[in-house]
Design a protein around this nucleic acid. Structure first.
Lengths: 239, 239
DNA sequence: CAGTGGTCTAGACCACGTT
DNA sequence: ACGTGGTCTAGACCACTGG
């Protein structure tokens, strides 16, 4: 499955897209050398400042790694995310030039238990949607997403194909996500979680619990398990 | 006295530092207009490509906001605190109304190894300060802090009593901390770390790695280990 | 030595929004 | 019309690395 490379936009963006596409296709694995600035100048018939910007931005984004006097290489990427932003795991993975896929384990309508009802600020026994999805990066599981959704906000949730569209994309299209609350923990996974995430015996999980509001209603609560060896949260801030 | 030699480094970095300093000093509040590219060209006597790069990078980092045909403005400050903005563990514990104490395990001057030098952006073998401190909440260990400090920025570091003042408080008094980078991971502790933090056998650590800059120099790098069962990061925000 | 990335210049054309 | 940012060119000098 090849993504279409956009033919419009700035030249440096075309060069970035081309490199991301080659990485995603597996032509340029991690550690391999990418064309030098001068080689890209000849390939794309642009000035060196333009190829420099493309390579520099991909380096700032963590996709490439550069060594002056040596060359530019595809970075050994460790998954990372900015906890400040509500992220679309699919966009995050595509942004690294990697292949994304998903597997739906559960998609059902259930009655809220006491704890779930409390978190979603609804009454116990009310109907809620429940999904459990494994997200894959380059074929390796990177996130187990367990989610409850308020049916009043997203009535069409059960009819979505979440192997093609992420819950985030659908929920964003249904309601503006105005407020979120998150908790980050380090925990040991249970057996099923460890198996779904293809984790080693003594490996911890980075667990993100997130609650999202639109207006004064809880739209969704999510528990996102990540393998500690393959996922980290990162961010830059001004104190 | 430590002399700040700021006539080193790329020109675009000097322009970025100048703008960050003016924002930090309160001269340019959120929403205020910053000089245009052409105005900065005259001020710094550089080409427009150089001022463009400085403003573009600050925009990519979320510091500024640009509108073509209008101007460049200081971005609105995020209203809600972020879990990773918690710098001072003592304030955090006092904020919970709990008792805080600390135990200094290591306070020494060492020569930077290859990895430390790389992270601190200095040369291998140069002198750096190294400290390792356990922080206690209500008498229970809550954080093991392993830190390297740039001696040029904080020459008096070795003379501090870190059972009374946290490293963060001292460093903040020595240099304006203009930028920070964080990575959060879930890892298993080694034996010594587990003992210092009084953790169970199969318990993971929440590890925060933080790198802090003042201008274009790395002031300090810190690795903060927390027992997974007793510590979590949490926060609210508006997208 | 030749090649690499890192930076910088002094121009240029364009789309856009304000005046 | 004018100033703004957005992009791009065709050079240039430098520090560094490899053979």
């Amino acid at each position: 499955m090849h993504k279409m490379v956009d033919n419009v936009g700035p030249l440096y963006q075309k060069i970035k897209d081309h490199i991301l596409q080659r990485i995603a296709d597996g032509d340029w694995p991690a550690g391999s050398r990418v064309p030098s600035e001068n080689e890209l100048v000849k390939l794309f018939k642009v000035s060196r400042m333009t190829t420099n910007r493309a390579l520099r931005e991909l380096t700032d984004e963590g996709v490439l790694m550069r060594v002056a006097g040596v060359g530019t290489f595809v970075a050994e990427v460790k998954a990372h995310s900015h906890p400040l932003e509500i992220h679309n795991i699919a966009d995050e993975i595509h942004g690294r030039g990697h292949d994304y896929s998903a597997k739906v384990l559960i998609l059902e309508e259930v009655r809220a238990g006491a704890e779930t009802a409390s978190w979603m600020e609804i009454n116990k026994g009310e109907s809620v949607f429940h999904s459990r999805i494994v997200h894959f990066e380059q074929g390796r599981p990177i996130q187990l997403e367990d989610r409850f959704v308020n049916p009043e906000v997203a009535p069409g949730y059960m009819a979505q194909d979440f192997s093609r569209t992420t819950p985030y994309e659908y929920l964003m299209s249904m309601a503006p996500l105005l407020k979120a609350e998150h908790v980050v923990k380090a925990v040991m996974p249970d057996g099923a979680t460890r198996q779904h995430l293809d984790m080693d015996e003594n490996e911890p999980c980075l667990l993100v619990e997130r609650r999202t509001w639109s207006g004064d209603r809880v739209v969704t609560i999510a528990r996102l398990w990540h393998p500690g060896s393959r996922y980290e949260l990162s961010g830059k801030f001004r104190p």
